[in-house]
Design a protein around this nucleic acid. Sequence first.
DNA 1: TTGTAGGCGTTATCAC
DNA 2: GTGATAACGCCTACAA
Lengths: 329, 329
Amino acid sequence: MRDVAVRAGVSTMTVSRVLNEPGKVSEEMRERVLKAVREIGYLPNHLAGSLSSNRSTTIGLIVPSIDNSIYTQTVKGLSEVLKRSGFQLMIAESGYDPNEEEELITVFLSHRVGGLVLHSTEHTPQAVEKIRKSGIPVVENGNIPKEPLDMVVSYSNRDASYAMTMHLGRLGYRKIAFASLYSVHNDRSQDRLKGYLAALKQLGHDPDPRMVLETGRGLAAGAEVVARVMQSVPEVDALFCAGEVLAAGALFECQRRNWSVPGRIALASFDDVDLLRHVSPSITTLRLPRYDIGERTARILLSRIIDGADHLRGSIVDLKFEVIQREST
Amino acid sequence: MRDVAVRAGVSTMTVSRVLNEPGKVSEEMRERVLKAVREIGYLPNHLAGSLSSNRSTTIGLIVPSIDNSIYTQTVKGLSEVLKRSGFQLMIAESGYDPNEEEELITVFLSHRVGGLVLHSTEHTPQAVEKIRKSGIPVVENGNIPKEPLDMVVSYSNRDASYAMTMHLGRLGYRKIAFASLYSVHNDRSQDRLKGYLAALKQLGHDPDPRMVLETGRGLAAGAEVVARVMQSVPEVDALFCAGEVLAAGALFECQRRNWSVPGRIALASFDDVDLLRHVSPSITTLRLPRYDIGERTARILLSRIIDGADHLRGSIVDLKFEVIQREST
DNA sequence: TTGTAGGCGTTATCAC
DNA sequence: GTGATAACGCCTACAA
C-alpha cells in the first residue's frame, strides 16, 4: 500500500479511503490512486486490515459431518448471501463430538471470525463460556434449543416429527414404527423421538419400545432397520424413517423382499431429498427449509455484524416445514 | 498477550515462545506462563500472528457448486488432514464461472491464504497471473490439465471414460450412447467425451452425434436423457451416463416405462455413489478416488507450506480409478 | 534461556 | 478533503 501511495503521490490514508470509503475522497485523488493500484497490481492485505480495524469478514461454520447431503443446501444458502457482502466462510466438521466442537470454536475465535454458525445445539460449558466472552454473534441452526446461545434459525425437529406421525395416524395406520439416527450427542434425533411419542399419545396409540429404532446413516442402514422391525413386530403397518435417506434404503429392501409399499408397510421420510421423489413408489416426506436456513442465518448475522442490529440478539426464527404426501403412504 | 506476560512476570516474547516453540523455554517459565494463560483465558490472535510472521494456516478451496455430492468426499479428505495440522479451510463456490473464480481467488489472496485448491482446471489469464505473482502453492483436482498451474491431484476423466466405454464394448454392446453434464466451462465433461470417442474408435464403432447427449444435473435429467436417446435412436443398446446420479435417474425412468435393464438397454455410471449400489438392478459404475484426492491434496500442500518441499512444485498425482461391474450391464 | 527493539500492513484519530 | 501519527497483537532479529 505504501508503494501505491508513493506512486500516486498521496498518503497511505488516502489510499485506504479510496479503497474503503470512496465517497470521502475527491474524484481526482480517487482516479490517481486507482490508477496506481492497477499499475502495481496491488492486493490489499485483509489480515492487516482486520487487525487494525478490529473488524472481521470471516464467518465460522461447524457442521457435524460435511458429507451429509442435508447440510449442503444450508451451506449453499449461507455461502451465497455471505459472498454478496464480501464475507468468507470457514468450515470445519465436529464429527458429532462436543469436545471437538469446542476445539474448533477456539480455533475460529483465534482467527477472529466475525460470527459463528453452529449446527449442533449441544455444547460444552467451556465452549459456551468462550463464545460469551468473545461477544461475537452466533446462530444455531440444527434445531430450536431450550436455552439458545444467542440467535437461532431453524425448524423444530420435534414439531416436524409430530406432524408426520400425526399424518400417518390420520391416514389410518395403527402400528407406526419410528427410526432415527443414533441419538447420542444428537439432540435432533432426540427431539424427533419426542415428537413421535407426543403424536402417539395424541392418537391414543400405545408406545412400543420394539418399534423405536436407532441406526446409522446411509441406504444400507435403512434396509437394516426395516428388516429389523418387520422381524420383531410383524404387525407393524408403517415405518417413519426420521433421518436422511433411511426411507429410500428401506424401500429398496422392501422391494427385494417383496413387501409391498404401502400395502404391507407404509414408509415415510424426513427431508425432501431428490431421490425420494423419483423412486417408485415415491416416498411421503417432510419438506424442510434447508436452503432458507442458510440464507436467513447469513442475513441475520450480517445485520448484527454490519449494522450492529443489537435488537436481534437472542432472536429465534422458527421456519416452516411441510408434509408432502406421496405414494408410499 | 501483554496481560499474560505481566501476570507471569515475563516478556511477551517468552509468552510467544511458550505458545509456539515450547521446547526453547525452560520448564519453570513454561508453567508460569501457561498458568497465566489459563487464568486470563487468553486466546492468541492468529491474524496478528500471520501478519507478523508472514505465514498462514488457511487454505482456500473453490468448487463449482457446494451442493454436489461428489465434492463432499474430497472436502472431507481435505478437511480431516488439514485439521490435524491446525490448518483452516475457507470454501467458496464459483458456479462454473471462471470470472467468478478469479474474483474468489483475489479475495482469498487478500486473506493471505497459505495455499489454494481449485476444482476447475479452466482459469482466466488474470487469475493465473495473480496466482503466479502470489507465489503460493496451488493444487488443481478436478481433472489432469495439459498445462497445470502448479500441482495436480486427480484422476484422468478421459481415461476413466475411455475405460468404461471399452468395458461396455467388450461386454458386446454395439450401440453405446453417451451422456454428460453440459460441457461449457466444464473440461471434465469435455474430457469424458474425448475418452468415449477414443474408445469407440478403438472398438471400431462409428460415432453417432445422436448418441452424444448433454444435460443438467439430478435424477430428473437422467430420466430425460434416457427417454431422449431411446426416442431418437431406438436401436441403442447401452447408455453411459458420465455424470453424477444421471444413471440412477435413467434407471427409474426405464422402470416407469418398462424398459428392462440391461435387457433392453444397459446403463453405466460415473462415480461410486451409494445409491447406485442399492437400486435394482445395481448399476455398473466407476469408483473414483474422491476422498483420496482430498487427502493427498492436503498432504502435498502441507509439505510445500510447512516443509518448504520445493521439489514438489509442479508435481502431478494421477490417482487410480476402477470399473465396477454390476447388474445393469 | 530470556529480553529489547522494530516492523508486519492496515486503520482510528485528530489535526490541518 | 487530506495527512501525520499511533496503535492493532504478534513475531523476527539480534543482543544480553
